[in-house]
Design a protein around this nucleic acid. Sequence first.
RNA 1: GCCCUUGUAGUUCAAUGGAUAGAACGAAGCUCUUCUAAGGCUUUGAUGUAGGUUCGAUUCCUACCAAGGGCACCA
Length: 592
Amino acid sequence: MEIQDRIIMKEKIENLIKNSLKEFDIETNNIFLEHPADIKMGDYSTNVAMVLAKENKTSPKELAEKIAGEINKMIAISLDLRLDVDRVEAKNGFINFYLSKNFLIDSIKEILENKNFGKNNYFDGKKVMIEYTDPNPFKPFHIGHLMSNAIGESISRIFEFSGAKVVRANYQGDVGPHVAKAVYQMLENIDDTKSLMMDNVSLTEKINYIGSSYSKGNDVYENKEECKKEIDEINKKIYERSDKKINEIYDWGRVLTLEAFEEIYKKLGTNFNYYFFESIVAPIGLKIVHENCDENKSDNIFEKSDGAIVFHAEKYDSRLHTRVFINSKGLPTYETKELGLTQMKFEKEKLDLSVVITANEQEEYMKVVSKALEIINPGIVHKMKHIVHGMMRLSSGKMSSRKGNVITGESLIIESCDKILEKIKDRDFTDEEKKQISNDVGVAALKYSILRQDISGNIIYDADKSISFEGDSGPYLQYSYARAFSILEKAKVENILPSFVFSEIDVNVFEIEKLLYRFPEIVLRGAQEFEPHYIANYLVDIARAFNAFYGNNKIIDKDDSMSSYKVALTLAFSYVIKNGLYLLGIKSPERM
RNA sequence: GCCCUUGUAGUUCAAUGGAUAGAACGAAGCUCUUCUAAGGCUUUGAUGUAGGUUCGAUUCCUACCAAGGGCACCA
């Protein structure tokens, strides 16, 4: 079933309401139709009676009952309507529509005919670049990068499911003070550095060395004035590539850290189409700023101030503030690089929309950059969207760091997978299978913890809750899929095939039937609002409904004439949850 | 001080201006010689404070309180 069909269903109901309103000489184009929060209140519901009661000098309840009565009359005389709508009830001023069993069975049929069930055409023909993850070489892959990755990958997939051509981009900071700090420290310990460069030790060991160099370099930068000066010097030399010795260490560290990131992306299931680097983008940004900072011109956007070049954003919007674009040493700051990056993105691809996903700590200065961009290139700003997410915090005590070690995104992934491995160690799987399952489930646990809630809020991450197979968790969803898969395997063995042929229809409606057809609407809403959590919450709903269905019914039963329909329902559930998990960037293991 | 964001059961999260504010975890009880019990079924409990707009406010507006972030050469 395509989303259009459901829109048709909505239109049908809307027309039904409009036609019934004519009976009472009421006309309105403003009919709001929704799924009631409580499924007992029907499949669709409208509040027109409440909206219209006052101007028609009647009570909402009375009007609702009149309208419902009229609609029921219309249904009674129309076979076409009866095929879709079972009945209409007025309650508390609402008018509630109950879909027919026939409609629900049809919707299950449609799901089985279409493995891509859930797609919509909201972004048809649009090319969208989504930039996310954005870790920095020479620094660890931290928890924020994990969040950005999970959210960005999910939004990318939701957009693809909504018809967009998505281009995935990753922007990595390979120049700047943080790099200089690491390089400084590696120069200080040049003997260790040289021997590591020669040695055939593991990537992890080398990465740890680079990471700790950054951390030490950062310390001395803050505490020792003479070291700060030296690091600033190195920073400049890295931009200029003017020092052979520095270049050698820099190139080595850069390649290695990028290689390590690549392994993490693989684990997380992301493939990028573009890698942008600050080193490439910086000169482009510098050019833009200098072009717009000509002292001989009167309409300058950027101004010189204390040896730096700044942008006074508060001149244009009182909520914004001044930011430095080029520092007093002539080096570009993040803001300038961002200008270069944006220009480069639009040169590389003909984009309808450019999305950037970062933590909310970047929100305020991104607004400043955006204002500068708006003045430089007014045509581009409406094609840009900055999505900000909250920060992840670890619930106290648990996952405590091993003395002084910062908990990185990578260590979180490893820990999550290890915990799953521990849980399944006594299960009847080969070591290879266990490794695969613990990886898929461990990553799912983490991703789900990130995607289950509104992205704007902070996340309190509790590792034990995250890897729980109970309740509101990624593993619970995967487990529900694996259970459905297992039942379907058994159905094959018993030769009970999905079918819609009934000797007699059991008119009882299962909750799961009332939820599955809504999937495309949920995907659409996720796309419109850039919010994966609608999908996550929906999947928990259908998983719960399926598990209840499973708990209360015997699905495989040769003596039950409904058995093949129950198998069809199970198959439909498995399609929907699998597609839903895919949209969250989560794999669906068939056994676990 | 100014600017953004967020305040919902004991805890972690939901709720396109609508119905009795939903889940999950925790706690108490029930449930399998049956398809994955890592499950299912009961019970328990919440909108920071004070106003305003509205037929109707967790949602919109104002003030206050609390938390997080940002406010010149880091990203």
